[in-house]
């Protein structure tokens, strides 16, 4: 085992790489080394991994069904059979939070999948080409940016009807413009760099330059930005849930749970606090991880 791990370490840090795969893995290893230097970042990552783990294995971890009502044990304080207490319908809060992690996680994943490519393509093309294309794309982006994001999301959900799917679409609509702006700024500074000039001097088309040279270089900062925005996404989703425009009861969405628990806040603090703490912890975790990721991806920033 020891020789094996030593061999792995040597392979990861070897000067003479033997294959492109090894080179790529070494690169990831170096990023991981820098990331691991940041204890807060590790804490954030740990929480995120815990969330993912929970979301996958809820059926086995959760002690109760999230929908099972038991009016006899309604509003029980934390402790005993109910780890985090029960809500007004006697549902186990711990189980509901666990099931809610699936919803939170899927919102995050879906929003990211929609937002990243749109924002990146709009921003990179606008930044690289400049001129009228830049003007048109950026005015559209600013149009979206000029509304506060929650208001915009509210308007869309109100128009499309309250549901989780519509909430996701609405959140995505409010999240792509900052990404586009970021990608544009990156490509503006990239397009005059010598290595882009060098590709132009190979006779590459503009489309090729944007797609295979500008976009990949924007990915790290976009990933960092999206990670940092996760907190905002979670909060917006919770906000929509709270206002009754996101997930509909009895779906165990964290924001909706806070919303319903609000009525019992004075007597039964745990109904509001527990999902609230979940929202807070996960948002914070994404922020910490995003910060550490930014430092890890750009070693020259020191």
């Amino acid at each position: 085992m020891t020789t094996n791990s030593k061999g792995l370490k040597a392979w990861l840090t070897a000067e003479d790489t033997e294959s492109p795969t090894q080179a790529a893995i070494q690169n990831i290893w170096m990023i991981w080394r820098r990331f691991a230097d940041n204890p807060l970042g590790l804490l954030g990552l740990g929480i995120i991994l815990l969330l993912v783990f929970a979301a996958i294995f809820v059926p086995w971890i959760a002690t109760y069904s999230p929908f099972e009502q038991n009016l006899q044990s309604a509003l029980r304080p934390p402790g005993g059979a109910h780890l985090l207490g029960t809500d007004e319908l006697g549902r186990d809060i711990f189980s509901r939070i666990l099931w809610g992690s699936r919803i939170t996680l899927s919102i995050i994943v879906i929003v990211s999948i929609i937002v990243a490519p749109i924002g990146m393509l709009v921003g990179c093309f606008a930044g690289y080409y400049g001129g009228w294309l830049d003007t048109i794309l950026m005015r559209i982006t600013e149009l979206f940016l000029s509304f506060p994001s929650l208001i915009l999301a509210l308007a869309f959900v109100a128009a499309l009807g309250p549901s989780l799917e519509n909430a996701v679409i609405a959140i995505a609509l409010t999240q792509w413009p900052p990404i586009a702006r970021l990608a544009r700024a990156e490509s503006l500074s990239l397009r005059h760099r010598d290595h882009i000039s060098a590709v132009r001097l190979m006779g590459a088309s503009n489309l090729r330059i944007v797609l295979s040279h500008i976009v990949p270089l924007c990915i790290p900062s976009v990933v960092v930005r999206i990670t940092l925005n996760m907190a905002g996404i979670i909060l917006t989703a919770a906000g929509l849930g709270f206002l009754g425009l996101g997930a509909q009861p009895p779906t165990p969405e964290w924001g909706a749970m806070v919303s319903t628990g609000r009525r019992f806040m004075l007597d039964s603090w745990w109904v509001v606090s527990m999902p609230g703490i979940a929202i807070l912890t996960v948002s914070l975790a994404f922020n910490l991880a995003g910060d550490a990721l930014r430092d890890a991806l750009d070693p020259r920033q020191e």
């Binding site: 760099r193 010598d194 290595h195 000039s197 060098a198 001097l201 270089l217």
Partner: peptide, 12 residues
């Protein structure tokens, strides 16, 4: 063309 700053001229 060969550029002045070889670090800048290569895709990082």
């Amino acid at each position: 063309m060969v550029f002045q700053d070889p670090y800048e001229a290569l895709h990082p």
